[in-house]
Design a protein around this nucleic acid. Structure first.
Lengths: 220, 220
DNA sequence: GTTCGTCTCCCCCGCCCGGGGGAGGTCCGG
DNA sequence: CCGGACCTCCCCCGGGCGGGGGAGACGAAC
């Protein structure tokens, strides 16, 4: 069965864009749209979407409030994918606190958008989707770190994946990790790929950054 | 003129190995050997080597003491390249404090050894030579960070290189950095290579790790 | 007993990365 | 005036990396 998505954004253009991108996927179905967070609750009750793509900034009720409302009033709530325009949107931290499962930049490429929807639908948390990892890297606020750590935990790396990530943060290559763990390099590649996917990282460097920024490893 | 090196190690075998590796290079010349730190001062006075490859653990006077002695009593002192067997040798921090310019693991590959000698001879500090970067990553001691930071400063990245490193720590690819700085990707590659060389990093991931471990960038 | 998650390994493939070496430009200081 | 440092760009080249897809083995949970 396909992944069902509810779009919540005050701009019709953005909704149309998201719909076009997502509907192009055979396994994703957009089941509804809303122009404001205030309309979300009844729609979620009726449509029971797997994922809600939620804009942060909306006129009546913003994405943070709407996220809180959904999680508070709906049992077996849908996954919340927060959609934001700006990288340095402090609201994303609010959304994290509110319980959002992932983030998405509006200017993300279609493949990234699709990827993000699938990931959250599968129950994986998107720690550093698209360029939000850059936000984490730039944001000087100390409070943000705690949330990131919590989300990393929710990313639920398996034991082996966590071990591989730890060795990545030591600067080891795939071959070196393989030697250290006494497995084949192909195995390591599998784990590394899993780590990259779960962290929303494009390459091992971004994964290591995510590890530092989230407190998975600490410097010094 | 060639780089002149003085070998200081209590094990003849290690000295022979280092000599063999270094003498194979046309631009490197081993001008002397000593079996203990206690013999270093007069030898340095007489031979005036560019680099002293100094073992840390020696019977009479260890490498840290010898390093302090050399820097204290010799004007225009040679560069000190500390040679150690173990990755987790707390002594390397002592050596850093004492003013050593670089580190070298005995099990490093010949090319790495040669590379390290050339680098310190050129006045570059080896922040994470060979696998000492792994030490920095594992070592939980908070005190170690200050030294690393100091050495990073001594690595003297140019302004442009520092900027490139900063963008690397944001997870950007060479192409993305090029776009950001409005230069060609080949230019970025040059800067990246320079950064890797100065930090003793093998790839951008290790460079980012070094940046975090040294305090060049801080998480959160 | 069957499903599911995890760990393991395999193949193919494109591409970015990093090494090596070279070269022109500016600007500053000796 | 002439180095020297720095920034810029170029070439060639090999290899590691990451994506995609598949598959077998094992133990735990249902």
């Amino acid at each position: 069965m396909p992944v069902t998505v509810l779009l919540v954004d005050d701009e019709p253009l953005v909704r149309a864009g998201l719909r076009a991108v997502l509907e192009a996927q055979p396994d994703i179905e957009v089941v509804g749209e809303a122009a404001d967070g205030a309309a979300v609750i009844p729609l979620v009750r009726r449509l029971r979407p797997d994922v809600v793509a939620m804009d942060v900034r909306m006129p009546l009720m913003d994405g943070i409030e709407a996220t809180r409302a959904v999680l508070r009033t709906i049992d077996d709530p849908p996954k919340i994918l927060v959609v934001t325009t700006f990288e340095n949107d402090e609201y994303v931290y609010e959304a994290l606190r509110a319980g959002a499962d992932g983030f998405l930049l509006k200017r993300a490429r279609p493949t990234e958008i699709v990827h993000a929807v699938r990931l959250v639908a599968e129950g994986e948390s998107l720690l550093f989707p698209a360029s939000v990892r850059q936000l984490a890297a730039t944001h000087g606020d100390a409070g943000g770190n705690r949330e990131a750590r919590a989300v990393l935990e929710r990313a639920r790396l398996t034991e082996r994946e966590a071990e591989v990530l730890r060795l990545m943060t030591r600067g080891l290559s795939n071959a070196e990790i393989a030697a250290r763990l006494v497995v084949g390099t192909e195995t390591v590649k599998s784990h590394v790929s899993a780590v990259l996917a779960k962290l929303g990282a494009r390459d091992r460097t971004q994964a290591v950054i995510a590890a530092y920024e989230s407190g998975f490893v600490a410097p010094g």
